[in-house]
Design a protein around this nucleic acid. Structure first.
Length: 801
DNA sequence: CAGTGAGCGAGCTTCCGCTTGACTT
């Protein structure tokens, strides 16, 4: 019945817009891209103008079917996807797939979801921009070519199933290089001198304008201070101001939620998604700093009524970030008069952050008064003239936006003095010295990345998009290139020289250093893969590769460059490079740790089929090399010969229990004990070690495991012992042989009968996912053709290197 | 899922960017 069909990208948006448009319009969503390069193979005809082979994405078939039906019933179709490269391409794919060429079609765009903006869009339709579509095709094809040609090089030269790509490989590079900087960092120290003075009964802190490099100098200075007097030498008062940060984009929201709420970037996005779907906030994947007029008016109203007129200052912000496409608004509350959203606490906390940030962005500057006091050291033993103490004070004269919100910092430097109020003083005043302290301070290595600080860096480099920051970070972790971990620190001694009253005291104190929380570390595989890629594919691994190709995408969008020409220029040398590397690129050999004292053969640490390992002997040797996996906490880059040789002592027989052998070894999931065909993990955190564990302790662990297994059982059945109801990590589940089946939420697990279970088993969907195809090899050990009966000539293909 | 690691073999893995659910042991 409806005459108009509007297609947008997001279903939540569709719902809102339908409300604005009235009954003549049906608004539906495409759920993002509907068509993509075929999943399998290159699907780009590199011989033939790089013709892409598209297919409807399997999970979009239903969406397309529904849209087709609606198109048939409509007089006019409005393609209202986002106004950016990807959005334009989605519209084009829709046009193709829905066969809209004979239909009355208009392309419309809007950057904010307000009634006014939508009406205006409808009044200003345009045609599809095929140049922009081509820019997207170039982007898509480039990414496919890079990803699907580089990854196989890694499979051949490093390890199967690895991956490489324009975005992920550079992401890993950032982390690897940061780790190297940290390893090469030379810790320096200096003595920082602080003082506590007082005047008119009020005390304050000051710092010396010089740090001493040796303890002797520091000692000499502090000693000299005993008996000196102190006078205000200079005093300056200057006005200053602070301005609020711009409203949130995806990247800044992720950073701030990490700093203030300790959310991972994935958590932030999923909480934000929920708020968005509930209509509480605007779209959360955006690089725009813009606020709609409605939002700014709303903020103004709120600020004026809560804090007064003088706190309001409408502002607009312009994006400085590379490659911003600004198809949406900044992330803001949908309605500025809503201060609380209820629901779960995480949602409320994130909303609160968004609310305050948005409000603050429309508020007046804070006005400050900064005071700097120079304090001269005088007296018989007074140190040389250019040494003086400096005290800094800061007073807020007008709070402005600080009343609501202040952006957090990533600064790990904890030496910053809190700059508070200083007592009133005048030049020439003499001060009482309470205390002088010289503290040995060590320089900090560059900080390791957190997920959020990595996103910040990626955004600065123009790598990745708001919709991909979180997935990229999870990809590099999933591939095993990077791990997010805590590290315990270690104690470090430092010296403090203190002058109090008239006594100088020297103490040694201990601080904890090197502790890390939820930081990103490269793994051995990450390091090896990165070094390999940087060596052979420097151009693609360079930090400005994306920025360079973005320029060319822009040229395509401007009609200055044909997309196929761009790809051709890129592909030829790239592909040759790939071929060359496949042919001649050496497998990364790892490190040689030394010689095995028993055999005299070399011992290597390298990446093997299953990850980092150590190897005795070479593959070419007559006797085949021996292998052993590294333990989880060991690293290829640091392991020494002694530890490597230890690894070859496993598996090891621990003793006997119940008439059968107990062995200890290290497997895919760490150290374990094996007994009667079942496995028990050994936790090194409990002080156990597969190399040294004794039989008594092993038995203890085996029995504990048996007990724990019993406790997991909720119910068993006499009819079939392989069917059990168990307690699992995600609640109760049903185990039938090797299959795990979820128990519906409304079913009480204790009440399940055997018949119920059988029904559930039958209804359970076949589990999909990888590893389905069994590796049923092993049978038929082949007739071992007559030894060395080589056929000589027809040595099949090439590639014998 | 658990002591693997080359060797002929069968066939698989992989990219980035748009969007939400379905689903996990």
């Amino acid at each position: 019945m409806s005459k108009n069909l509007v297609i947008v990208e997001s279903p939540a948006k569709a719902k809102t817009i339908e409300g604005f448009l009235g009954k003549d319009f049906v608004v539906k969503s495409s759920y993002g891209h509907v068509r993509d390069l075929k999943k399998k193979g290159l699907s780009v005809d590199v011989e033939n103008s790089f013709e892409p082979e598209y297919e409807i994405s399997p999970d979009k078939k239903k969406v397309i079917d529904e849209l087709k039906k609606l198109v048939a019933k409509s007089d006019k179709v409005w393609l209202a996807t986002d106004e950016d490269r990807e959005g334009e391409a989605i519209s084009w794919h829709l046009e193709q797939v829905l066969d809209l060429s004979k239909k009355d079609v208009s392309r419309i765009v809007f950057h904010e979801i307000t009634k006014g903006a939508i009406s205006k869009a409808i009044e200003n339709p345009r045609k599809l921009d095929y140049r922009l579509v081509d820019a997207q095709q170039a982007r898509r094809v480039l990414d496919r070519l890079v990803g699907f040609e580089l990854s196989p090089v890694l499979w051949r030269k490093v390890k199967p199933s690895l991956s490489a790509g324009r975005v992920q490989s550079v992401t890993v590079r950032l982390i690897v290089e940061r780790e190297r900087e940290i390893n090469n960092f030379e810790e320096k120290f200096a003595y920082r001198v602080t003082a506590v003075f007082s005047t008119n009964g009020k005390s304050f802190k000051a710092e010396l304008n010089k740090r001493f490099e040796t303890v002797e100098e520091a000692r000499e200075f502090v000693n000299a201070c005993n008996g000196s007097s102190y006078r205000v030498d200079d005093l300056q008062v200057k006005p200053a101001k602070k301005s609020p940060a711009a409203p949130f984009t995806t990247s800044t929201l992720q950073q701030e939620a990490s700093r203030k709420l300790s959310f991972s970037v994935a958590r932030t996005m999923s909480v934000a998604q929920k708020l968005y779907e509930e209509g509480k906030i605007t779209y959360m994947r955006t690089d725009s700093l813009n606020l709609s007029d409605t939002a700014r008016d709303g903020a103004k109203k709120q600020i004026t009524s809560s804090y007064g007129e003088e706190f309001s200052k409408p502002r607009t912000f312009t994006s400085k970030s590379k490659g911003a496409q600004e198809a949406h608004e900044a992330i803001r509350p949908a309605d500025m008069s809503v201060t609380s959203v209820g629901g779960d606490p995480a949602g409320q906390r994130l909303y609160d952050l968004i609310y305050k940030r948005t409000l603050a962005s429309q508020m007046a500057d804070a006005k400050l008064e900064k005071t700097t006091v120079r304090i001269k050291v005088e007296g018989s033993d007074a140190p040389s003239d250019n040494l003086h103490f400096v005290a800094r004070g800061e007073v807020i004269k007008f709070e402005g936006f600080l009343k609501v919100y202040l952006e957090g910092t990533d600064d790990e430097d904890n030496e910053k003095e809190e700059e508070g109020l200083l007592p009133s003083m005048n030049v020439g005043d003499s001060l009482d010295r309470k205390m002088i302290t010289a503290t040995q301070r060590f320089s900090n290595h560059p900080p390791r990345y957190t997920e959020a600080s990595l996103v910040k860096k990626l955004e600065e480099l123009g790598i990745g998009r708001p919709s991909t920051y979180a997935p990229t970070i999870s990809t590099v972790q999933k591939r095993g290139y990077v791990v997010k971990e805590d590290r315990e620190g270690h104690p470090r001694e430092y010296t403090v020289i203190e002058l109090e009253q008239n006594k100088v005291e020297e103490k040694t104190k201990t601080e904890n250093t090197g502790a890390e929380k939820q930081k990103l570390f490269p793994t051995d595989i990450g390091i090896v893969v990165n070094d390999f890629l940087v060596e052979h594919f420097e151009k693609i691994l360079s930090y400005d590769f994306t920025a360079n190709v973005e320029k060319q995408f822009d040229d395509i969008a401007d009609g200055m460059l044909k997309w196929t020409d761009m790809i051709r220029t890129f592909y030829k040398p790239f592909h040759e490079n790939v071929e060359e590397t496949l042919e001649h690129g050496d497998r990364p050999t790892g490190r040689e740790l030394g010689k095995d004292p028993k055999s005299g053969k070399p011992v290597y640490a390298k990446i093997g089929r299953y990850g980092p390992m150590v190897q005795i002997g070479d593959a070419e040797d007559e006797e085949k090399p021996r292998f052993a996996s590294l333990r989880h906490e060991q690293s290829m880059t640091t392991i020494n010969l002694e530890d490597a040789l230890e690894l070859f002592k496993l598996p090891r027989e621990v003793g006997e229990f119940e008439g059968e052998k107990v062995t200890a070894a290290i497997g895919r999931f760490g150290p374990y004990l094996r007994h009667k065909g079942s496995f028990v993990s050994i936790k090194e955190a409990d002080g156990d070690d597969p190399l040294s564990i004794k039989i008594d302790r092993a038995i203890e662990l085996i029995e504990a495991k048996r007990k724990a297994d019993l406790e997991r059982i909720i119910k068993t059945f006499d009819e079939d012992e392989t069917v059990q109801v168990l307690k699992g990590r995600w609640g109760p589940y049903l185990k039938a042989g090797k299959k795990n089946i979820k128990i519906p939420k409304d079913v009480e697990p204790e009440s399940l009968t055997f018949a119920d279970c059988q029904k559930l088993i039958e209804e359970a969907p076949e589990k999909k996912g990888r590893g389905g195809a069994t590796r049923a090899k092993k049978a038929a050990p082949k007739k071992k053709a007559a030894p060395k009966a080589k056929k000589g000539a027809p040595k099949s293909k090439k590639k014998s290197k």
